[in-house]
């Protein structure tokens, strides 16, 4: 098997269509993610019911045509609460990813590009962050910062910093030692030009793909912390706390925890499928 010249298809529009043809699962996942993002942006389009005040007479109704996810102990429509809770959960997850991406990539970029003792010191630091179980690290940050959705998001982001730092560093090292970077230096390009024109663009792809893959884990972590009660304060709807509320009615109202939890699982699954599809695309691209 000797090396054959890889003639990749030109990078044009039909790429998305090709993805749909070769990976129908990715297409379904894309639809789920888009739907849930639409919930987050325009909840009013998907449900007319009030997520905050309920009809006490309608409490703990099982799912039916009027209440797709049933109602809770105060007679509030659970589908409405799930849809309206999306925004907070998704924003928290994006904030967490943002924190991890910015801080982690920064650390990784500096470590990989400067090398030497700076690299050593930063990498030992990430070793330590990896030694503390992620959830415990988040909980320690929550203890120090206090409760609330934004603080939970930051705490979750901090726990993912090390992962991003490592991936960014390894990408920077890979690119920095690539022959084309040496060629650029010989061509007379300065350090900054090399960093901006070669290293960053080539290192960014895998890091962004990691962000897509990590998004699922981050959503789970945010909702776990909310479930434990450190996130949104009642009556604000949020995915994790919705499941937590239902816990007390487990014996009498199976839908209360089950259906909002199912939405979390579906979203995380869809994000994961998409993330992996993107990673694979990125790999065949090169």
């Amino acid at each position: 098997m000797s090396r054959t010249p890889t003639r990749a298809a030109p990078h044009t529009l039909p790429r998305g269509l090709a993805l749909a043809r070769t990976r129908p699962a990715a297409l379904v996942a894309l639809a789920v993610v888009l739907l849930i993002l639409a919930w987050a942006l325009f909840p009013g389009l998907f449900t007319g019911q009030d997520p905050i005040t309920g009809v006490p007479a309608d409490k703990l109704l099982p799912p039916d045509g009027a209440h797709w996810f049933g109602t809770d102990h105060l007679g509030r429509d659970l589908f409405a609460r799930t849809v309206h809770g999306t925004s907070l959960s998704v924003r928290a997850a994006l904030l967490a990813i943002g924190v991890a991406l910015v801080a982690g990539s920064g650390v990784g970029l500096v470590a990989g590009f400067l090398g030497g003792p700076v690299d050593d010191a930063l990498m030992r630091a990430t070793d330590v962050l990896l030694a503390i179980p992620g959830l415990l690290l988040s909980l320690a940050v929550v203890t120090a910062l206090g409760f609330g959705t934004v603080k939970v998001a930051i705490a979750v982001g901090v726990a993912s910093v090390a992962t991003f730092a490592r991936v960014m560093r390894s990408q920077v090292l890979r690119v920095r030692h690539a022959t084309y970077v040496e060629a650029a230096r010989l061509a007379g390009s300065g350090r900054t030009a090399v960093l901006l024109r070669h290293v960053l663009p080539n290192a960014a792809g895998p890091v962004l793909a990691l962000a897509a893959v990590e998004l699922g884990a981050v959503i789970l972590a945010v909702s776990a912390l909310s479930f434990l009660g450190y996130g949104a304060t009642p009556p604000t709807p949020e995915w994790g706390s919705l499941v937590a509320e239902g816990r007390d009615y487990l014996a009498v109202a199976w839908w209360y925890s089950t259906l909002p939890g199912l939405v979390i699982a579906l979203f995380v699954l869809a994000v994961g499928v998409l993330g992996r599809a993107l990673t694979r695309e990125g790999r065949t691209d090169r």
Binding site: G216, A217, L220, S223, A224, F227, G240, V243, A244, G246, R247, L250, A251, W254, S257, T258, G261, L262, I264, A265, L266, V268, L269, G272, V273, R276
Partner: peptide, 22 residues
């Protein structure tokens, strides 16, 4: 495996509780 990674642990616990205990 992708399914197992995606489901929240607390939710699995609640579903198991509902089925096997209640």
């Amino acid at each position: 495996p992708p399914l197992g990674v995606a489901v929240p642990g607390f939710w699995v616990g609640l579903v198991l509780l509902h089925l096997f205990s209640f």
